[in-house]
Design a protein around this nucleic acid. Structure first.
Lengths: 143, 143
DNA sequence: ATCAGTATTGAGACTAAGTCTCAATACAAG
DNA sequence: CTTGTATTGAGACTTAGTCTCAATACTGAT
């Protein structure tokens, strides 16, 4: 998966540098969502000597490329999740942080209806679903 | 509208203090969304001598009471919008910041479908729609 | 292979956002 | 009025993110 990220960056015409390769590998081995601080901590733990700015710069690049998406957690923090570049939404497990992608599911009808009622010209939307993944439901049922 | 905020705070069993009254009035005279910094600036401009912490504390209180909702702007900033305490979603005008509330519009069907497909047990969701309000469409058509 | 030009880098200063502590104050119930 | 306690502002502190700049390292051309 790190490979895919790097290929996509290559396609985008940016240089494939050491720090970028290393960060791509760190992202690839993460499961679920992570924050910029998580990634920075990973890098520091391995003494990769990667600066804070570089982490933010890469995340921005990946987000531009839709290889990673920014998710606003219910507690207000910003996290990222690696994902397919097509438009979709995320299900975030509030227990373990696991992420699942869902594609359209009919939200277009909802936005069209909202546009009709309000007169707004809708350009984009963001739908985030929070709950518990199947695994966490089994571990601690009906909490 | 400041009155409504204060009444609701009273209901919630907190004290109706000077700073809270003043901030409620500032919120009431705002249109569209605003950030904590905006409110703080308003207060400073009027030399109300209200501390940063007080502003954040009140916003948290109001959010707990669902009198104000936190919105994550596309650029990643956090904003607040005063609103009805019932569940609903917001349309945010990216030109002028105007806010419009939309109620359900069939999103429950979407979340149910997503839950079915993923096996998640969905607890909450957040839908934000960004676009241009009717007024801004007229000012600068088809931008 | 090497070179040259330029994108990218890390360090660290800086800004902004938000939290926390604590002594002083002000509300509200009696 | 008095008194107990919630709330306050100041300001230190933390965390998130940006910016600058000189040094480095890709990459494409040679």
């Amino acid at each position: 998966m790190a490979r895919e990220l790097l290929e996509a960056l290559d396609q985008a015409g940016v240089r494939l540098t050491g720090p970028r390769r290393e960060l791509a590998a760190l992202i690839a081995r993460r499961t679920g969502h992570f924050t910029a601080a998580d990634l920075l901590a990973d890098a520091e733990q391995r003494s990769l000597g990667i600066g804070r700015a570089t982490v933010f710069r890469l995340l921005e690049l990946l987000a531009d490329q839709n290889l990673v998406e920014r998710v606003d957690l219910p507690d207000g923090r910003h996290a990222y999740v690696p994902c397919e570049p097509s438009h979709h939404h995320h299900l975030v497990c509030v227990s373990c942080g696991a992420i699942s992608e869902v594609d359209d599911c009919g939200i277009d009808a909802v936005t069209a209806e909202a546009a009709r009622r309000s007169g707004f010209e809708i350009q984009s939307h963001r739908l985030e679903l929070f709950g518990r993944c199947p695994r966490c439901q089994n571990v601690e049922p009906r909490q």
